[in-house]
Amino acid sequence: MESSYTIVIADDHPLFRNALFQSVNMAIGDANLLEADSLDALFSLVKAHEDTDLVLLDLKMPGANGMSGLIQLRADYPNLPVVVISANEEPSVVSQVKAHGAFGFIPKSSDIKSLIGALNQVLEGEPYFPDISSSYSQEHYELSQKIATLTPQQYKVLTMLSDGLLNKQIAYELNVSEATIKAHMTAIFRKLGVKNRTQAVILLQQTETEH
């Protein structure tokens, strides 16, 4: 395989970044590998390197809240393949990642052989996801699909609601008016099919499994 790929490894753990670095080199040879340890650093790299072929993204990084990093990447760079590499391998997380348009999901527990196989598959243009159908309900799948209809800003508002912030605090954090937040809320409730913030937060929490 040609070694002309530009790949961004976005993970805030240096040891894991190093392990990924070695695995990518073993999979595809002398790639141009860039590293980011936060969401801001990731977006700066992608902006500076328009020829980026792939982003390997950890969900839990400074600046990221839940799926927010993935959602923002998909919104800003819809043609850039993003593969999530996460320690949280719950079916609900894999399903959400898929619903939000990721090109793949690689569990951090994967051995080197599996990791190299997954990377090769992705770089050949084939999505890679572990099989979750046997232990995953249709209800959870539909929940993930609903959450995936939210815009990046709506998702941010929902995660802030989940953290217990008031409209006024969310407006301050996002540097917008309270009226804008209320408009976002209306749209969020409509998309999720709920009537109030409590129901919206419960829906979000049902799709997330914290470790």
Rank of each mutant, 00 (worst) to 15 (best):
R74T: 01
Q96W: 02
L158M: 06
N79M: 10
A99P: 02
S114F: 12
A102C: 11
L119I: 12
Q96N: 14
S110Q: 09
P152K: 08
P130S: 10
A118R: 04
S144P: 03
S162K: 05
A148V: 06
V94K: 02
L115F: 06
S95K: 08
P107M: 08
Q169K: 13
G117D: 14
E126A: 14
K108W: 05
G164I: 10
S109D: 13
Q153M: 13
S134P: 14
N79V: 06
D76Y: 05
P91T: 13
S92I: 04
V84E: 04
Y155M: 09
E142I: 13
A75R: 01
M160S: 05
P127C: 11
L161W: 01
S135M: 15
V83T: 08
L143S: 03
K156L: 11
Y155F: 13
H100T: 01
V82M: 02
S95G: 10
V157C: 02
Y136L: 14
Y128E: 10
I106N: 02
N88W: 01
Q138F: 14
K168P: 05
K146V: 04
Q138V: 13
S137W: 04
P91E: 11
P127M: 11
L115C: 09
N79C: 08
E90M: 09
L115I: 08
L150V: 11
S92Y: 03
Q121K: 15
R74F: 00
M160N: 05
V122L: 04
S137A: 08
A102E: 01
